[in-house]
């Protein structure tokens, strides 16, 4: 195990990959569930299963599961969960750009605080 206090390229890459997979997975599920042509009940599930979004979401989550295990095995857990909070920021920003979700002042403050906290933890190592 690497000494505490050093973030290697591998750790940084796994962290970035985790953000991409988590955000991508959530957006894929959103696209699958939000399709207005999908209908209701069993027909809705059949519709979702016949299109790529649901499977893209599931695939992303499976990959993220493995990436997260690898990531946490290389750094202290307390640091890992804090650095992982960046996913909250990524998904809100993605929601804003892709689905036009509103960013109220309180939301912007929350996003900025989480990002600041992640930066402090990341730079402090």
């Amino acid at each position: 195990m690497p000494a505490e206090g050093s973030i290697s390229t591998l750790v940084a890459s796994l962290w970035l990959l985790n953000i991409v997979l988590d955000t991508g997975g959530q957006l894929a599920f959103k696209a699958a569930a939000g399709d207005p042509a999908a209908g209701d009940g069993l027909a809705r599930w059949r519709h979702m299963a016949s299109r790529p979004w649901l499977w893209l979401g599931i695939g992303s989550y499976v990959a993220e599961f493995l990436v997260w295990i690898a990531f946490l095995s290389l750094i202290p857990l307390s640091e890992g969960v804090l650095l992982g909070s960046i996913n909250i920021v990524a998904i809100m920003i993605a929601g804003r750009f892709l689905f036009g979700e509103k960013l109220t002042r309180l939301r912007v403050a929350g996003i900025a605080l989480v990002a600041l906290g992640v930066a402090i933890v990341g730079l402090g190592t």
Partner: peptide, 17 residues
């Protein structure tokens, strides 16, 4: 110190959200 301060900011952010 970095983890403590970072955690405080993150928690404050989550409460705001």
């Amino acid at each position: 110190l970095a983890r403590g301060l970072g955690a405080l900011a993150i928690i404050a952010g989550i409460v705001c959200l």
